[in-house]
Design a protein around this nucleic acid. Structure first.
Lengths: 240, 240
DNA sequence: CAGTGGTCTAGACCACCAC
DNA sequence: TGGTGGTCTAGACCACTGC
């Protein structure tokens, strides 16, 4: 089955913006015209534009039309979108990311993990600590907890490769939603040893719970970044 | 004019979840049933549920139904949603927030501000630094730049009260989208003096550009928080 | 006033899931 | 196989904007 029409339409319009056919701060053709040209209904065009508006690529003004949004001037090289559902390998590229396993065990969950992953006390979890290297430089320490029952047969090979790809492609599970918290904190011994953070260097931490589309929590994790290597970004639209 | 039906429906369903009529991890009535009960079309119900799904309150499974999402177990007292379009006064409550103006001037913008606010070099800006106090305790330092042409007649009274409320209620301008960056950094003299941060205390900074619904940038700002007083949270859904 | 996007409807067909 | 949500259509009316 092909992708939904509204996604194809969104893709097409996105391409045209990228290609410069529709230029920044100018009007797009109106929804009716686009609908006729692309041979879909107006509602399908609107749905596509709604998606692009949420992504910040266009904005609409009732009574006027739909405009291409201006470029964002403060993009930085350490920026990472805070709303992604993918692993580092996919985000940055498999060639640039290497992983070193600092800890890998199976345990019974303590009370906090039981609550975060909705588990009973005798349902085992993986306790994983990985150092991720970007271009062979220490980058992030990821501390991950996952229920064994949802991710069977996890091993060192998968941990070195890509856990997310294993979950998606082998187990055919899909991520649904996530709750994330971003905070600053002081560096600990681990950060100093593995990320070469100094004692008075701040750390940027991302704490998250990820749920599958069927509502089951599959991951609770903490990612600790050096403050000079990572920033998190959010594109937000007031209309939704 | 009353609010759109799909927003009223969303509100109604939200209330029922809060009231416990629909309980966590259980099925909602199907869309057709809800549509009949609330006397709207099925599409209107779906639109309402889409909104609630984006907010993380429910999740849908094709073929099964719509479920009430489980409670989030890691909510903390310093959590602030990273996707809000409102001032501190409205977020936390006007009684608990006080503001002290540390700096207020009108200037020509430097090159960075010109780029961030899409201004020419002779279009003046406000340069505002405010210390915000929560329950009379130092909380955030906000450094804000706004074009004078979009926000005329700004004065100390408004700065002490609520800039956002002035922009919305007096000037009738609406925020459209925002690009935000969250980062950790070291404390500077200002943080130490006004937020009583220690020299080796990390800071959590939010940098953002906010656009109006008509595409004009209205604000570039930096909010500096003590690491132990603020965390930013994001609810994200993989489907959108 | 004309043109734009926003909303809403009834009806149809499809994909997905449990049984 | 039956019931669920996902998509799509044609058509209608409304609200907002600039002229």
């Amino acid at each position: 089955m092909a992708k939904a029409k509204y996604l194809q339409v969104a893709e097409e319009i996105k391409e045209r913006i990228k290609a410069g056919i529709y230029k920044a701060s100018t009007l797009l053709p109106d929804q009716e015209t686009l609908a006729k040209e692309l041979d879909v209904s107006r509602l399908t065009v609107k749905k596509a534009l709604d998606g692009l508006e949420r992504q910040g690529l266009v904005y609409k003004q009732s009574g006027l039309g739909t405009f291409v949004a201006s470029q964002i001037p403060i993009k930085g090289k350490n920026d990472a979108p805070a709303n992604l559902f993918m692993g580092l390998k996919k985000e940055i590229g498999p060639d640039r990311i290497k992983s070193k396993i600092l800890h890998f065990s199976v345990e019974f969950p303590d009370e906090q993990i039981q609550a975060n992953l909705e588990l009973k006390k005798n349902e085992p979890i993986y306790n994983i600590i990985r150092l991720r290297l970007l271009d062979n430089e220490p980058f992030v320490i990821e501390h991950t907890f996952m229920p064994v029952k949802l991710v069977p047969n996890l091993d060192e090979t998968i941990l070195k490769d890509s856990v997310y790809s294993y979950i998606h492609k082998k187990l055919h599970l899909k991520f649904g939603r996530a709750y994330r918290r971003i905070l600053a904190c002081k560096s600990d011994k681990y950060d100093q040893k593995y990320l070469h953070a100094k004692e008075d260097d701040p750390m940027l931490e991302l704490e998250q719970i990820v749920w599958l589309t069927n509502g089951q929590p599959i991951e609770y994790s903490l990612s600790r970044n050096r403050y000079d290597r990572r920033t998190y970004t959010i594109v937000e639209n007031n209309r939704f």
